[in-house]
């Protein structure tokens, strides 16, 4: 009987595990292996070059620009999304219509979002400049994505816009599970809505917020698709919106340096992993048990 159970488990798992091994693990392993070679993408016998690719990363201005920009995104995007999502979730308690509206961007693919926002930002017939003119703010009109000081902020605005909805729904669901009698008791004790929110709601939904930090941290280290489709260059103007993922893509597919690009991938992998672990540690709090 026992034997049969294991046989059943093995039988059930073999297909997914094989698929996972072939299409997830093996490419990862190969990327790690290629990171130590000078593979150009078509050669059948790349040379082993040791840690050369990794030491090159430190004085590659494009990679460093990507690192800097992803760093800024990591500081801005998760915080902005979580604050906004908490505010919107708290502000729209009980009104489902808004949640559907906020969630809507989540239904669009990144490519479509990028194309739509490119039309919003485009200088001469764009929605944003049009709106500014309609408000009589003609002097505020900009070539949004073509200004080195603004372009990255424009990209981040899109990232925030497109992810807020998901977290509104996540946080709303968590808030609904907070028992009403605790809130009521707090209110009777004279706590204002802000105090209730800060002292009761937030601690009770902290696990959802923690998940948010980690997901958003990982997302902030990416940004490839938006930058690739929306920005000047792409990655411009003058590398002001360069992200690590774009650098990797360009290094592999435009410059034909697949070994070096794999090294970038490995570096990004460990960076993302460390940041996820760090966020997990930093945001750790005592879990509140509800009876």
């Amino acid at each position: 009987m026992r034997h049969g159970k294991y046989r059943f488990l093995a039988g059930a798992l073999i297909v997914p595990l094989t698929l996972y091994g072939a299409f997830v693990l093996s490419p990862y392993l190969q990327a790690f292996q290629l990171a130590f070679t000078n593979w150009n993408g078509v050669d059948s016998a790349p040379e082993f070059t040791g840690f050369d690719n990794f030491s090159k990363l430190w004085d590659d201005p494009l990679f460093l620009a990507g690192l800097r920009n992803n760093g800024l995104m990591l500081l801005v995007v998760p915080l902005a999304v979580i604050v906004l999502a908490l505010a919107l979730a708290a502000g729209t308690r009980g009104t489902r219509v808004y949640r559907v509206v906020y969630f809507f961007p989540q239904l669009l693919s990144v490519a479509i979002i990028a194309v739509l926002w490119q039309f919003v930002y485009t200088p001469n017939s764009g929605l944003l400049n049009g709106a500014l003119s309609a408000l009589g703010l003609d002097s505020w009109r900009q070539s949004w994505l073509a200004e080195p000081n603004l372009a990255l902020w424009c990209v981040m605005a899109v990232m925030i816009w497109s992810s807020v909805g998901f977290y509104v729904v996540l946080f709303s669901a968590a808030m609904e599970s907070v028992p009403g009698d605790i809130m009521e008791a707090a209110a009777i004790d004279g706590a204002g809505p802000m105090t209730v929110f800060r002292r009761i709601t937030i601690p009770l939904i902290w696990e959802s917020v923690q998940v948010g930090w980690i997901y958003l941290g990982i997302a902030a280290l990416d940004g490839f698709a938006l930058v690739q489709i929306m920005t000047v260059g792409p990655g411009g103007p003058d590398n002001s919106t360069e992200v690590m993922g774009l650098g990797l893509y360009r290094t592999a597919f435009t410059f034909g340096k697949f070994g070096y690009a794999s090294a970038m991938g490995v570096a990004i992998f460990f960076l993302t992993l460390s940041i996820a672990v760090l966020l997990l540690r930093v945001t750790k709090r005592e879990r509140v048990e509800l009876a």
């Binding site: 490119q118 485009t122 001469n124 070539s143 949004w144």
Partner: peptide, 16 residues
């Protein structure tokens, strides 16, 4: 140069 050209895609510039 047409103002805003630096932010136009090839399609937008060519259509203008």
């Amino acid at each position: 140069i047409l103002p805003g050209s630096e932010g136009l895609s090839h399609t937008e510039a060519q259509n203008a």
